[in-house]
Every structure is written in structure tokens, then in C-alpha cells.
Amino acid sequence: MSLRILAVDDSASMRQMVAFTLQSAGFEVTEAEDGQVALNLAQKEKFKLVLADVNMPNMDGLTLVKNLRTLPDYKFTPLLMLTTESTPEKKAEGKAAGATGWLVKPFNPEQLIATIRKVLG
């Protein structure tokens, strides 16, 4: 069984690239263009991991994480932020929202795969 990951980014190129990177490593990827879309998808299907941008229209990544954490299915799911914003303040905000960890853009595809493999065990 392959593992399904939800990739959330308002930038289509970034989304496609993340999806391509993860698919090439054998994961299945569903894409969402903002937090609201992601939340709707997550309510219908339990993803093994969510990889989300922070700055997005409609619902930003931190709000998405906060909302996901209230769903029983996502209580313990790894929720990773993938973003250019890496200030300690932003990271602390992410932590407070319930984010598992922080990946900084621009990222190296090989490193992304390695990290996600570690997280998913």
C-alpha cells in the first residue's frame, strides 16, 4: 500500500514539484491550492502526512494545521510546514498551532524525500 500525502501550496509550480518529487519516491500525492481546500479533502480522507505552505489565500497554513488538529483523524498525524518563512517567531507560531516540523524553502528534492521517509518510518 502506498502512503497518501496531502501537498498544500497556492503556487501551482511548487505544488507540482512537491507532488512530482514525492511520487518519484513512491508516495501518492493529493494536491490542494489553499488551506480551505485541504481541510475539505482531509475531512473526506485520512492522509498519512500533510505538507503545507504557510502563506496562502482563503486559509493559511497555520490555520489549516490548527483545524486539522481538531479532527480525530489528525490528532497525531505529521503536519509539516514547507515555507520560506523560517523566523523563530513563525516557527513558534507553527508549533503552537500543532505543526510537527518545519521544512524551509527552497528545498532540495532528495532531502525532502529523506525527511518524509524518516517521518513516516
Binding site: D10, S11, S13, M14, M17, N55, T83, T84, K105, P106, F107
Partner: peptide, 11 residues
Amino acid sequence: AHSIKGGGGTF
């Protein structure tokens, strides 16, 4: 601006 910067860096 943020998206353009992020994509520019990644690509």
C-alpha cells in the same frame, strides 16, 4: 511576492 520569491529560489 512571497510565492515568486519561493519559486525563484526553488527552481
